[in-house]
């Protein structure tokens, strides 16, 4: 017989994401799901952001990588709580992976939690993990055609950080096209141009993040 069903395929993930959210809200935590392609500068942005927030906010980090602990080691040097998830091949973090490490972080002592997703411009955008906002990075070495080639992540993100602007003199990059296409896909996306190498523009991003997380 035919059985009519009305459920979302990702129901299981979304239920766990809701549980995570309750745990975060209970601890008074603001959670940012940070996404980008590999090498765009997620860990570098986190390093700059954590330094900029020193004394202002208590930050924790969940690192997601297919394998290895390089990123967690970098974050640990800044003396903030960090836990590394190795997905063992999966191209994104899902709600269950986050759920399984909640007890490894002192949630009640933190104000802000960054979840650094696996480097990938496609899949992470599809899976909620219990975050308040998604933020993405596009580095200018990736090219200005990326918003239209990978629309979903731009549509899902509250903020777009355009990184590596110190390399502008060496690249044929159309910054205006990135802005125009990103805003066409997502009119409310907030765009920041930064260089994690020189620190340029990082303050404006941090200021927005603090404001957004407090409102």
């Amino acid at each position: 017989m035919k059985l009519k069903v009305a459920s979302k395929i990702l129901d299981a993930n979304e239920r766990i994401a809701q549980d995570n959210r309750k745990a975060f809200e209970g601890a008074g935590l603001y959670v940012v799901n940070l996404m980008s392609s590999p090498g765009a500068g997620k860990t570098s942005l986190l390093e700059n952001t954590i330094k900029g927030l020193a004394g202002k906010s208590r930050v924790g980090v969940i690192e997601g990588d297919i394998t290895g602990t390089d990123d967690a080691v970098r974050i640990e040097r800044l003396e903030v709580p960090v836990v590394q998830i190795n997905t063992g091949g999966a191209c994104h973090l899902d709600a269950n992976m986050i759920n399984s490490v909640l007890n490894d972080l002192p949630l009640a002592e933190l104000n802000l939690l960054f979840i650094e997703n696996v480097g990938n411009l496609v899949c992470p955008a599809e899976f909620k993990v219990g975050e308040d906002i998604k933020v993405m990075i596009l580095s200018i070495t990736e090219g200005h055609d990326k918003p239209l080639k990978y629309p979903l992540m731009f549509q899902e993100s509250s903020a777009l950080i355009i990184n590596k602007i110190d390399l502008k003199p060496f690249l044929d990059i159309d910054m205006e096209k990135i802005r125009k296409d990103a805003l066409s896909l997502n009119p409310s996306i907030k765009i920041f141009e930064v260089s994690c190498k020189t620190g340029e523009g990082v303050d404006a991003w941090i200021e927005w993040l603090v404001q957004t997380s407090n409102s």
């Binding site: 069903v5 990702l10 299981a12 999966a90 191209c91 899949c123 899976f127």
Partner: peptide, 21 residues
């Protein structure tokens, strides 16, 4: 490759629905 996770979730939900009924 996130289709693997989606297929997993799809099977999980369908099997549960079938068994529940």
């Amino acid at each position: 490759m996130h289709e693997v996770s989606i297929a997993d979730s799809l099977l999980d939900t369908s099997v549960r629905e079938c068994r529940d009924k």
